[in-house]
Design a protein around this nucleic acid. Structure first.
Length: 559
RNA sequence: UGGGGAGUCGUCUAAGGGUAGGACAGCGGAUUUUGGUUCCGCCAGUCGGGGUUCGAAUCCCUGCUCCCCAGCCA
C-alpha cells in the first residue's frame, strides 16, 4: 500500500471523533516520559504515534515529563529525552511541560476529593495496606481509618504536606471499594510521604502524587484529547475515569496499545538500567542497546526508525517483532544516502608485479550509485594493495568468483588483475602475499574486448591506507525473547558473550579521515558504518557497523 | 477457580457480512563494475467446535490458548 497511509484502530478512533466533533475538531496528544532512564525504540513507536497522529490531523503534541517520583528521577534523563525526541525529528514548540508544575493544583484537587468524602488519610503501615488489599481472588477489607471525618482527613493531609510525619507513616487514599474485582479500585494510594529533594521543586514538597492520580489530571489540565498509553494501563482506565468524574473536570480519553518488543533484546528501562549499572554494556548509548542514543551511536538514522515505527503498526495484540524488520528499514534508508567507501577489514597484501614501482594514480569513484548528484571522489592506486583475505581462495569452490590462482577479477573502479603467484610462510603455510598482474587496458574497470569478469573486489592502496578500528555487533542476547527465563535464571544469563567484535587492523581509503559522527557510510560489499563519536580520537578512528549488507553468497556458504 | 485484554501466513499488520491483502523473513530467477540495489516469481494464515446466513476472519453460542493486574513505581 504505497500511496495509502497505513491505518490502525487509534487512527480510526481519531478520525471518527473528528467527524462527530467530539473534541470540537481538536486533536491534542502528549508524550509523557518519566525521566528515570533513557528512551528506547519502544518509546519511539509511542512518540511516532503521538506526534504522527497530531501532525496528520492538524493537532498538537506536548512533551511532558511525568516527574512525580523524585527518588528515581534525574536531570540527566531529561536532557537525554529532549535530545532523543528532537533527533527523531519531532517538535513540541513551546509545549514542554512537567507534572511537577501542577503539584499545587493536584494538591488542591486532592483536598476537594477529601471534601466530597472520596478520600481519606490512612495510618496503616505499608505491610498492612498490602495485607488489607486482599488478593486477586479474595476481596480486601476496609482500613480502620477509612471512615475518618472529613475535617480530620483535611487536617491530617495538610500536616502531611507540612512535613509533620515520617516517610511511610501515612498516605492519602481514594475511597472506592475494597472488594472491587479490579485491584486498582481497592482504595488506591494517591499521595505518599517522601522527604526527598525533587529535581525541579527542590524541598518544597514532601508528599508526592501517585501515577494514577497525577496522570489523568495532567492530561486534563493540558486539555489532551486522546491519551495514548500501553496495554498494562488498561486496568487503570477505570481509575483514570473515576478520578476525573469525581472531580467533574475535563476528561480526555485514554486508549491503550501494545508496546513494542523486539527479538534478541530487552525493552524495559529497569533491565536496560541493570545492564548499564552492572557494566555489561558501555553506558546507555552502547551500540548494542535498543536505546535511541545507542541506535544513534550505532549509525541508525531517525528516518529509518520512523519508517520502522510505521511499518510495525499499532494494535492491541501483545507482539514480538523480528529485529530483521528494523534492519530492513535501516538498509532501505541507508542504501539511498550512505556514501560508498572502500575499507579492507582483514587485509591481505597484493603486489601488482607489472605495475611500475614508484607509480601512483588517482582514480575516479562514484560516491553513491543510487544518487549520482552526490558526485565522485579520487582514490589512489599503486603497486601494493590490500584486499580482503576472504576474497582469495587457493582452491575455488563452484560458483566462487573471487580471486584464486590464475583467476582474473576486477578491482572496483581500477583494473582487472590476475593472480599469478601465492607467497606463503614456510613454517605455518599461511598466505602472506599475492603476486598479481594487471591489465593496463582495463583502467576504470572496463575492458575493450568485452571479456567477462564476474568478481569485483574492493581494495585499498597500501601506501595511502588509513588504519582504523572497526566494531561489529551481534545480538546482545542469545535468546529470541530474553524475557522468557527458565526457573532459577535471569535475563542476564542470556547475555551474548560474543556480541561485540573489535577489528583492529582494518585499512581504509584516505577519504575516511573526513568522517564525522552522524555521517552514514557504506563500506563497499560489507555493510553500513558510522563513526563512533565517543571512542574516536583525531588519530584513532573507530567505526561501528550499523548493519551488514545482505549477503546471499555468505548465506549460501554458511548453510 | 477474581478482573481486564488478545488470538489472521514463521513475524508484524490490513480486510468488519461479499475474491483473506501488504510488509519482513524464507525460497527461486533476471539485471548488475558492490554476491549490494532494482525487478519478477514462489512459499505461507483466519485458535477449535457448533450455529445464523445464499455467503462468516467479521454476527451468535461454546470451548481452548496467551498477555496484564495483589508498589507508598510509572
Amino acid at each position: 500500500m504505497p500511496s495509502e497511509k497505513r491505518t490502525n484502530f487509534i487512527r480510526e478512533i481519531v478520525k471518527q471523533d473528528l467527524k462527530s466533533g467530539k473534541w470540537g475538531g481538536r486533536v491534542h496528544t502528549r508524550f509523557p516520559p518519566e525521566p528515570n532512564g533513557y528512551l528506547h525504540i519502544g518509546h519511539a513507536k509511542a512518540i511516532c504515534l503521538d506526534f504522527g497522529l497530531a501532525e496528520e490531523f492538524g493537532g498538537k503534541t506536548n512533551l511532558r515529563f511525568d516527574d512525580t517520583n523524585p527518588i528515581k528521577e534525574e536531570e540527566e534523563y531529561i536532557r537525554s529525552i529532549i535530545e532523543d525526541v528532537h533527533w527523531l525529528g519531532f517538535d513540541w514548540e513551546d509545549r514542554l511541560y512537567f507534572a511537577s508544575d501542577y503539584f499545587e493544583q493536584m494538591y488542591e484537587y486532592a483536598e476537594q476529593l477529601i471534601r466530597i468524602g472520596k478520600a481519606y488519610v490512612d495510618d496503616l503501615p505499608p505491610e498492612k495496606i498490602r495485607e488489607y488489599r486482599g488478593t486477586l481472588t479474595t476481596p480486601g477489607k476496609n482500613s480502620p481509618y477509612r471512615d475518618r471525618p472529613v475535617e480530620e482527613n483535611l487536617d491530617l493531609f495538610r500536616r502531611m504536606r507540612a512535613g509533620e510525619f515520617e516517610d511511610g507513616s501515612r498516605v492519602l487514599r481514594a475511597k472506592i471499594d475494597m472488594s472491587h474485582p479490579n485491584m486498582n479500585m481497592r482504595d488506591p494510594v494517591i499521595y505518599r510521604i517522601l522527604h526527598a529533594r525533587h529535581h525541579r521543586t527542590g524541598d518544597s514538597w514532601c508528599i508526592y502524587p501517585m501515577y494514577d492520580w497525577a496522570h489523568g489530571l495532567e492530561d486534563s489540565i493540558e486539555r489532551i484529547t486522546h491519551s495514548l498509553c500501553t496495554l498494562e494501563f488498561e486496568d487503570h482506565r477505570p481509575l483514570y475515569d473515576w478520578f476525573l468524574d469525581q472531580l467533574g473536570v475535563y476528561h480526555p480519553q485514554q486508549i491503550e496499545f501494545a508496546p513494542l518488543n523486539l527479538t534478541y533484546t530487552v525493552m524495559s528501562k529497569r533491565k536496560l538500567k541493570q545492564l548499564v549499572v552492572e557494566g555489561l554494556v558501555d553506558g546507555w548509548d552502547d551500540p548494542r542497546l535498543p536505546t535511541l542514543s545507542g541506535l544513534r551511536r550505532r549509525g541508525y538514522s531517525p528516518e529509518a526508525i520512523r519508517a520502522f515505527s510505521d511499518e510495525v503498526g499499532v494494535a492491541k495484540k501483545p507482539s514480538l517483532t523480528e529485529i530483521e524488520l528494523l534492519e530492513h528499514c535501516l538498509r532501505t534508508d541507508l542504501n539511498q544516502r550512505a556514501l560508498r567507501v572502500m575499507v579492507v577489514l582483514n587485509p591481505l597484501k597484493v603486489t601488482i608485479r607489472n605495475y611500475p614501482e614508484d607509480q601512483e594514480e588517482w582514480l575516479e569513484a562514484d560516491n553513491n550509485p543510487e544518487r549520482p548528484e552526490d558526485g565522485t571522489r579520487q582514490i589512489p592506486f599503486g603497486r601494493e594493495l590490500w584486499i580482503e583475505r576472504d576474497d582469495f581462495r587457493e582452491e575455488a569452490p563452484r560458483k566462487y568468483f573471487r580471486l584464486a590462482p590464475g583467476r582474473e577479477v576486477r578491482l572496483k573502479h581500477a583494473y582487472y588483475i590476475t593472480c599469478v603467484d601465492v607467497v606463503k610462510d614456510e613454517q605455518s603455510g599461511e598466505i602472506q602475499e599475492l603476486i598479481c598482474e594487471y591489465d593496463p587496458e582495463t583502467k576504470g574497470g572496463w575492458s575493450q574486448d568485452g571479456r567477462k569478469v564476474k568478481g569485483t573486489l574492493h581494495w585499498v592502496s597500501a601506501r595511502h591506507a588509513q588504519p582504523i578500528e572497526v566494531r561489529h555487533f551481534d545480538h546482545l542476547f542469545t535468546r529470541k525473547n530474553p524475557n522468557e527465563v527458565e526457573s532459577g535464571k535471569s535475563f542476564l544469563d542470556y547475555v551474548n558473550p560474543d556480541s561485540l567484535t573489535i577489528i583492529k587492523g582494518a585499512m581504509a581509503e584516505p577519504s575516511l579521515a573526513e568522517a564525522r559522527p552522524g555521517m552514514y557510510f557504506q563500506f563497499l560489499r560489507q555493510g553500513y558504518y558510522s563513526l563512533d563519536g565517543k571512542l574516536s580520537t583525531a588519530s584513532h578512528l573507530v567505526f561501528n557497523r550499523s548493519v551488514s549488507l545482505r549477503d546471499s553468497w555468505g548465506k549460501k556458504q554458511g548453510s
